[in-house]
Design a protein around this nucleic acid. Structure first.
Lengths: 233, 233
DNA sequence: CCAAAAGTGTTCGAATTACACCCATGA
DNA sequence: TCATGGGTGTAATTCGAACACTTTTGG
């Protein structure tokens, strides 16, 4: 027996806002798909799909991301749910947006990306279908706020990164210049980075030391009332 | 013709987390409903309902709130969407939680509250149905974060309030004592409060001046890069 | 040896904290 | 007149911002 009869049911979808940071071009990018079905076939769209019966919303987001990028265990977070009546002209669809963060070392080497998927620089995005531009704007503004107060920036960087690279990431997201000395002082004083013996030698002769994020240390500090804070000049 | 055939549809609901600040008892309260239908009839629940065909999610939240409290034009904000497979044993329901803030002057005078609705102190809530306790915890933690950085606290206070009352609100939400002089200095220095000539004379012989929030002034400041910040000792 | 990028400290002003007494008034 | 809650200032410290030179090394 089914309870709650007499209420209308709707299609429920998930749309993934996949941000990738390109450490080479020092640019934040967004994964877009050329839509392969009607309505709006051929237009740019976020990676989305409908929620299936045997999965939760979170599961659906993971599945769609895996299908599109081949990646698993990546940072994935619910953003916002869009439920305007006419948002999708094909049918009434309620869609929950998820935000994913990926470190792009070399875009062409990204595993198994669907050929209809393309990385586009955040600066100068094309028009997107439905309310997808809205979704992106909200997610980006949330990312800008979140990256100040939570260590999510590390999700956009490779395992090993230099302080220069980390600073470039913050500069790209905030769209402003950052003072090198103040930035280093601040991030190092938090005590959540581990300096490695290895140096990155591709961009300079002197070479820059690699660091990695010490997640265990961060979590221990957080429990003791420590707040990550990286509001920078 | 219907596009997107072959995908399962689901019930879509809205649950309202209605916080009310009781200026007399100096306590944050939550509006709970004794559920009147199966499953879980008789248990405590948030104010919820299903989304109807002619309304958006936001519209549904407003409608449910109006039906339950008789109030309109109150602060209402989407919180989070809950979509676990088995979250509602009656059927698969995807539910978007909304958070509302209300100033309670005198609970018994609140307009037209459904007789199955009750205000309960945040300290010592009963068990709630489904994942409603989760919803409340998340919304409360978001409120604690938000009230530091946005002037949402004023939604929990009456139009006219004293600085003592405002401080008591912050103390109730942060669950800690706040230094009177530092608090007053900080909030007054923002320049977004308007001092009235009138005094509140019920709680003291001397009387405390009423203030009100100057929203226009706040919005002008915000456009010029001003940030509301009320992290207090 | 030199160009190019990495790395490093100090000073100054602003903001935050801690803290204790006087004021006004109704009963 | 006195008990009650409202209202006020200052000193010490911490934090954030601005700022320029030295180091390393491959070519």
């Amino acid at each position: 027996m089914e309870l709650y009869s007499n209420y209308t049911q709707y299609l429920v979808a998930v749309d993934c806002i996949v941000f990738g940071y390109d450490i080479i071009e020092k640019e934040l990018k967004l994964l877009l798909i050329k839509r392969s079905f009607e309505p709006m076939k051929g237009s740019w769209s976020l990676a989305g799909g409908f929620v299936e019966e045997m999965e939760s919303l979170d599961d659906a987001a993971s599945r769609i991301l895996r299908t599109l990028t081949g990646l698993e265990r990546i940072y994935l977070k619910q953003s916002f749910t869009y439920g305007e009546k006419e948002r999708d002209p094909g049918a009434r669809v309620i869609s929950t947006a998820y935000c994913a963060l990926i470190a792009l070392r070399d875009i062409n080497k990204e595993p198994a990306v669907n050929s209809e998927a393309h990385w586009r620089s955040i600066a100068g995005l094309p028009d997107l279908i439905f309310d997808h531009s809205l979704m992106v704007n909200k997610a980006l503004s949330d990312l800008q706020n979140q990256i100040k107060a939570k260590p999510v920036g590390f999700e956009l960087l490779p395992e090993k990164f230099t302080l220069v690279q980390m600073q470039e990431l913050y500069a790209a997201i905030y769209q402003k210049q950052i003072d090198k000395r103040n930035f280093r002082k601040k991030i190092l004083s938090m005590g959540i980075l581990e300096k490695l013996d290895e140096k990155e030698r591709e961009t300079s002769k002197k070479g820059a030391y690699y660091y990695k994020f010490n997640k265990e240390r961060y979590e221990k500090l957080e429990q003791n009332g420590f707040y990550f804070n990286l509001d920078v000049s």
